[in-house]
Simulated assay, not measured.
Amino acid sequence: MSPIRKFQVTFDCAEPVRVARFWCEVLGYVMAPPSTEFATWEEYDLSQPPEKRGSWCACSDPSGVGPRLYFQRVPEGKTVKNRVHLDVRVGTGLVGEERLATLEAEAERLLAFGAVRVEVLYDGTDSCIVMQDVEGNEFCVD
């Protein structure tokens, strides 16, 4: 049996720093330093040739438990629904109206950071709220 390995989730996007900052707010992550040579992303970016500035960014879970998120600039825009998406788990163990109220509160918080609400899925017991990040990538508040 092979050992469990760490993994990162990579996002293709137009504005890596903007999308990384959004996901830091959503998940309580912090911007990962670009390298040991630079204290901030801004310092790192200024050291790059103009065409490379803003081409990538990363953020990480300050507790070290969650996966690193990596954001890379790509020339093409998003055209179809994501094949993979993140579920932001805030309602684990809750059901019915209590669960829905918890999800609604989190969705409202995320709207302030630029998220877009797509739809609420609710069957009287289970629920989730489909949303999009600042570049239109789908995710669920679950």
Rank of each mutant, 00 (worst) to 15 (best):
S35W: 03
W41D: 00
P67F: 01
W41K: 01
V95H: 15
P67E: 07
G28R: 02
W23I: 05
T36G: 15
F71S: 04
E37W: 01
R73Q: 11
C24H: 00
V84C: 14
R89V: 15
Y29L: 09
G54C: 08
V95D: 15
L69G: 09
E25R: 13
V30M: 01
E42V: 04
P67H: 00
R83S: 15
L69S: 08
S63V: 03
G66N: 12
K52C: 11
T92A: 15
L69D: 06
Y70Q: 13
S60H: 10
P67L: 08
M31H: 00
P34F: 05
Y29S: 09
T36C: 08
Y44V: 04
L69M: 12
A32P: 11
L94G: 11
R73T: 02
R73I: 04
V30I: 04
L69I: 07
P34V: 10
G66I: 05
P49V: 01
N82P: 10
V26F: 04
E51G: 10
E43Y: 02
W23Y: 11
G64Q: 08
F38S: 06
A58M: 10
K52N: 12
P62V: 01
Y44C: 12
W41S: 00
G96I: 09
S63R: 13
L69E: 06
R68P: 11
E51Q: 08
C59N: 04
V90C: 14
E51T: 08
E98P: 13
L69V: 07
P67I: 06
L27F: 07
E76Y: 06
W41I: 02
W41T: 01
S55Y: 01
V80M: 08
R53K: 14
R53I: 07
Y44F: 10
T36K: 12
T40C: 04
K81V: 04
M31E: 00
E76K: 02
L69W: 00
Q48I: 03
Y70R: 07
A32E: 10
R73K: 14
C24A: 06
F38K: 06
A39G: 04
S55Q: 11
L86M: 13
A58W: 02
G93F: 07
R83E: 14
S60W: 07
V65K: 14
D87W: 01
G96R: 05
W23V: 07
E51F: 07
G91L: 06
T92S: 15
A39N: 05
V74P: 08
L94P: 13
S60C: 13
L46A: 15
P49N: 02
T92F: 14
L69Q: 03
S47Q: 01
F38C: 07
Q72G: 13
T92E: 15
T36F: 01
C59W: 02
G66V: 07
L69P: 03
R68M: 15
L94E: 15
A39S: 05
Q48R: 11
E37D: 09
Y44K: 09
W23N: 10
V74A: 10
D87F: 00
W41P: 02
L27P: 11
P62H: 00
W56I: 11
R83Y: 00
